[in-house]
Design a protein around this nucleic acid. Structure first.
Lengths: 126, 126
DNA sequence: TATAAGTGCAAGTATTTACTTGCGCAATGG
DNA sequence: CCATTGCGCAAGTAAATACTTGCACTTATA
């Protein structure tokens, strides 16, 4: 039942992202969060549970209230993952024009469309 | 049937993240991708479809092969979202020590616990 | 000490996933 | 031309999601 509870999975849901946005600045209790949404309190409670299971949210019991606090540093995994590709596509963009220009140049020179299937991996293992 | 196909949803699945990692450098055809995983080709094909629906992957038909190309710039939405909180938690970390020190200082000076908003000294869950 | 406020837990349901197997079809290449 | 390769489509399944309603249990508070 308890499946994978990773951060990527947790932030996949727009409601949960909205919850994070709501408590990022300061802790908020469960009912206050729930009031901001159209779904039931139980639904929000479940979202919070999911967020808590991957460490994105921690609870602090104060009397009968339960403050929900965002632990933003748990987003580090996502940040690192995206950052990697961000750098990749950024540097690629910088060299895109020159690449295309060169390709076009070759095409004009040799007369062939600069075919690229030579860049495949195509390693079979079965 | 066609539900929300946003990028967050797309990268929530570890298999799909692995696919992105595999084709980030250069385009790869469907079967070659599928061979890298333990699931069936159809499963991979479905993952690719989902990735394509949110623009993270584009296909290029070359003969009977279908090259899958990663469009990393589509990760921009995720990047921006995470980056926002990354800055938040980074700056917060930088000011945490001084905040606590100042709070403690005030507490000693005035004799009051300095309004106790978020002193999480007693968080020993689990 | 009733009551209200703040929440969790359990059960039930409608959708969505994530996969699988089986079949068909177009491009290739001997 | 015919077997092979590369893939999509469709049907079927098991499990996970996202919600809801109803009930029980603590704390504050009048």
């Amino acid at each position: 039942m308890e499946a994978r509870r990773d951060v990527f999975q947790a932030i996949a849901d727009p409601t949960r992202r909205a919850i994070i946005g709501m408590i990022a600045e300061q802790p908020v209790n469960v009912n206050t969060i729930a009031e901001q949404f159209d779904v039931s309190r139980q639904a929000i409670s479940l979202h919070l549970k999911i967020l808590a299971e991957c460490g994105l949210v921690e609870f602090r019991q104060t009397g009968r209230e339960r403050l929900c606090e965002a632990k933003l540093d748990k987003l580090e995994e996502v940040h690192a993952w995206v950052q990697h590709y961000h750098q990749l596509w950024t540097s690629r963009f910088n060299s895109l024009k020159s690449f295309l220009e060169q390709e076009e140049l070759e095409s004009k020179t040799t007369g062939t469309p600069a075919k690229q299937p030579s860049r495949q991996i195509s390693k079979r293992k079965k």
